[in-house]
Amino acid sequence: MEFILCFFLLMVGLYAVVTKRNLVKIIIGLAIMEYAINLFLILIGYRKDGIAPIMTSTMDRVEFLRKAVDPLPQALVITSIVIGFGILALAVSIAIRIYERFGTFDINEIKKLKG
C-alpha cells in the first residue's frame, strides 16, 4: 500500500514536469519526484515496530538483528537529499536569470532555440 502511494507521488511529480507551463511549477515537480524516491528508499529498509539501528552494549545481537531497521537506505537518502538540494538550487538560480532575460516564467514564451 505504501509503495503504491509512493509511486503515485512519483507520478504527480512527473505530471507536473511534463504538463505545467510555468518554470517554478516544473521545479516543484522535480522536487516532488526526488522526495518520492527518497520515501521509497526509506520504505525499503523499513520494518514494522523496528528500532533505530544503533547497537548498545546491553542489547542481544540476535534480538537486535531481528528488530532493527536497515541503516543503509537511510545513508543513501541523506546523500540523495544533498544532491537534490544542489540540483534545486541550480534550477532556481537559472530560473531567476531566465526571468531577468525574458521577463516571464511561461515556457511558451521562452523559445528562442529551435530545430
Binding site: L23, A91, I94, A95, R97, I98, R101, F102, I110, K111, K112, L113
Partner: peptide, 10 residues
C-alpha cells in the same frame, strides 16, 4: 548567461 544559453541549460 545569454537568453538562449539559459534556456538550453534549463
Amino acid at each position: 548567461t545569454e537568453a538562449e544559453e539559459l534556456e538550453a541549460s534549463f
